[in-house]
Design a protein around this nucleic acid. Structure first.
Length: 596
RNA sequence: GGUUCCAUAGCUCAACUGGAUAGAGCAACUGCCUUCUAAGCAGUAGGUCGCAGGUUCGAGUCCUGCUGGAAUCACCA
């Protein structure tokens, strides 16, 4: 049993004996003792003073005295106001360490028997991935791993937005201005090529609007009447009707995009168990709309468009099908939700999508509830904040979008520069070096994006992101590499460090206690990170752990230790920290090198 | 305008979900490499937690109002 749980139960027993009242679990809240006081766990007696009929301070004194006398694990106590600080003896801490050290499933919580689907990435096939997608992908992937570690049966899903008016824009521009260009002939990745034509559409469209405005038309009308837009809409209708030429072009261009995406995904280190295409789900969405119409949950306007009225629930009316019969975003999402449930029969379905779509998902979930879907209660929108640049919001039209491929290139370049300046990898061949740069680059980038609470809007400062000092991915990777070096050396020296004996250890370094506390706390944090869908909790943890270990590392020479048993312990102890760093970073989708 | 979210050190972020004297990193300054990897460690300095009330033994955290910012309210996705 974990120390904190033993302590809680002892506390409850002691309290019962002293005051004749049984504390509820919620009253048994133990906090870590603040640094400036002596102790490991703190029990706050203010809330329970009403059961003791004594002052909080006196209650704390009585409790502390009694528990210290009877407990096998409490060494001493002190009371500051109503705060009872309890110090656990080192023996109990070391035994805790031994349990952790021998636990091969450390960092894996017991199975919960629940299935969770996590949908993330969800790119549009009309442009390459950018910085915003990086946050999404890293977040979705990491959340999946964390859910898994917390005991859920996780399936990662990608929903590719491969149809709709935006795709038609790229297609139209390509048809008009492409001259048969291909990724090979242009020498650029397929997703970038398609993105080029999406931008081209926008440019030509703007030109046309400007001309129409010159002729005296107002802007709003021009936007609707522009020939290019009409052609794009027509193309969408043709696509939905299965027009062979349109569908063939669509297939060809999408294939290029997928090839580009696959490369980018591989480099990012993310993956999916299943990929859905909206081109395959929108029809199912239409049947759901029909169903709703049949049950009079939705209604049809004179022009043939279909709507749902959610004004009773404080929302607006929402379009579900256009008057020309083509489907909209919502239609597709209805179909996809249905299909995902058919495929997985999940308990929970998580959508990793930016908070700009809060309203959309609120509506989507309400509609599915209206349709009385069995899975409606398990739907969850993991709404994350946008990524801003120092210059403000990313805007594709102003060319301020940070491209994902470019960014990863730059990070790798920076990693190379830093590493070469430090000159630490003399024995590396070119392949090993390249691998290390990639590990550091992605580590820096992922950590930078994941250390912030997902819900919050964050600032991406390019200069800060390429920093390798302080609270960064490479700092943590470095901590791991240093421990790995010690273990290598210990093994070279033939030290059988696994055979340490905690019962004959003398005095240990003061950081040991704190570090074991942290190791012991790891599974709790995994649970919390899973609960709140926040990799930031893991990031914060692994940073704190590394920071604390670095103090141990500097202040307590490991291999120079003369007491062979303590030496063994220190190596084993360090290896456990390294393992935990590796595991925690793994949950962030970040790998750690053994040398850097 | 309606709805939702945000505001903590010069900058970027924490604060164990209501607990003690609000913590890290960056930037600035001072020490520590005859080395288990200095991509590190230790220290100094930096705060009316946007403002004003309220609830509570206790509020950065909960409630109300105000100020400032963001998102959204499309026959875009």
């Amino acid at each position: 049993m974990k120390l904190i749980n033993i302590l809680k139960s002892e506390l409850a027993d002691t309290f019962q004996k002293l005051f004749g009242h049984t504390l509820q679990a919620t009253d048994l809240n133990l906090l870590p003792t603040r640094k400036e006081f002596e102790g490991d766990y703190t029990f706050v007696t203010f809330p329970v003073a009403r059961y003791t009929k004594k002052s909080p301070e006196e209650s704390a004194q009585l409790l502390g005295k009694a528990i210290t006398e009877t407990s096998e694990i409490v060494e001493s106590y002190n009371v500051v106001k109503g705060f009872l600080n309890l110090k656990i003896n080192i023996k109990a801490w070391l035994e805790t360490f031994e349990t952790i050290y021998q636990n091969e499933l450390f960092g894996q919580l017991a199975g919960k028997g629940k299935k969770v689907i996590i949908e993330y990435s969800s790119p549009n096939t009309n442009k390459p991935l950018h910085l915003g997608h990086l946050r999404n992908n890293f977040l979705g992937y990491s959340v999946s791993l964390i859910q898994q570690a917390a005991g859920y049966d996780v399936h990662k899903v990608n929903l590719v937005n491969d149809r709709g008016i935006h795709i038609c824009k790229s297609m139209l521009a390509y048809e008009k201005f492409g001259n048969g260009e291909t990724p090979e002939s242009a020498g650029i990745k397929g997703d970038h090529l398609i993105g080029k034509y999406y931008v081209r559409f926008d440019q030509e469209y703007k030109k046309e609007i400007a001309l129409m405005q010159d002729d005296g038309m107002d802007k709003e009308k021009a936007e609707k009447e522009a020939l290019l837009m009409k052609q794009a809409q027509k193309m969408l209708q043709a696509w939905e009707q299965g027009d062979t030429a349109v569908v063939d072009l669509w297939k060809k261009m999408n294939a290029w995009v997928y090839e580009g995406f696959d490369q980018t995904y591989a480099r990012m280190g993310v993956s999916f168990d299943k990929t859905y295409h909206e081109s395959n789900t929108y029809l199912l969405g239409k049947t759901l709309v029909e169903e709703g119409l049949g049950k009079a949950l939705f209604y049809k306007k004179e022009d043939g468009s279909v709507w749902v009225d959610l004004s009773d629930e404080g929302l607006d009316e929402k379009l579900l099908l256009r008057s020309d019969g083509t489907s909209v975003y919502m239609t597709q999402d209805l179909g996809t939700a249905e299909l995902k449930y058919k495929d997985f029969h999940y308990d929970k379905s998580v959508y990793v999508v930016g908070n700009e779509q809060d309203y959309h998902f609120e509506v989507l979930f309400k509609i599915l509830k209206k349709l009385n879907r069995p899975y409606a209660e398990g739907l969850f929108h993991l709404s994350y904040g946008m990524v801003d640049l120092p210059s403000g919001k990313m805007k594709s039209r102003e060319g301020t979008v940070v491209d994902a491929d470019d960014l990863m290139d730059e990070m790798a370049e920076t990693a190379k520069k830093h590493t070469q300046e430090l000159g630490k990898i003399d024995g590396f061949d070119e392949e090993q070096a390249g691998l290390l740069y990639e590990t550091l680059a992605l580590g820096a980038l992922k950590y930078f994006l994941l250390k912030v609470d997902p819900k919050k809007r964050m600032l991406f400062n390019p200069e800060e992101s390429i920093q390798f000092h302080g609270n960064t991915g490479p700092f943590i990777q470095y901590t791991h590499a240093r421990i790995a070096a010690i273990i290598r050396k210990a093994e070279q020296l033939g030290i059988d460090y696994k055979s340490f004996d905690i019962h004959v250890l003398g005095k240990t370094h003061e950081t040991v206690r704190q570090l074991i506390y942290m190791l012991d706390d790891y599974d709790r944090l995994i649970g919390e990170a899973a609960e709140s869908f926040s990799p930031a909790i893991i990031a914060q943890y692994v940073y704190d752990l590394s920071k604390e270990f670095n103090r141990f590392y500097t202040e307590e020479p490991i291999l120079k230790e003369e007491d062979i048993n303590y030496l063994k312990f220190k190596v084993a102890f360090s290896s456990q920290v390294a393992l935990t760093i590796k595991h925690a970073m793994g949950l962030l989708g970040i790998s750690v090198p053994d040398r850097m």
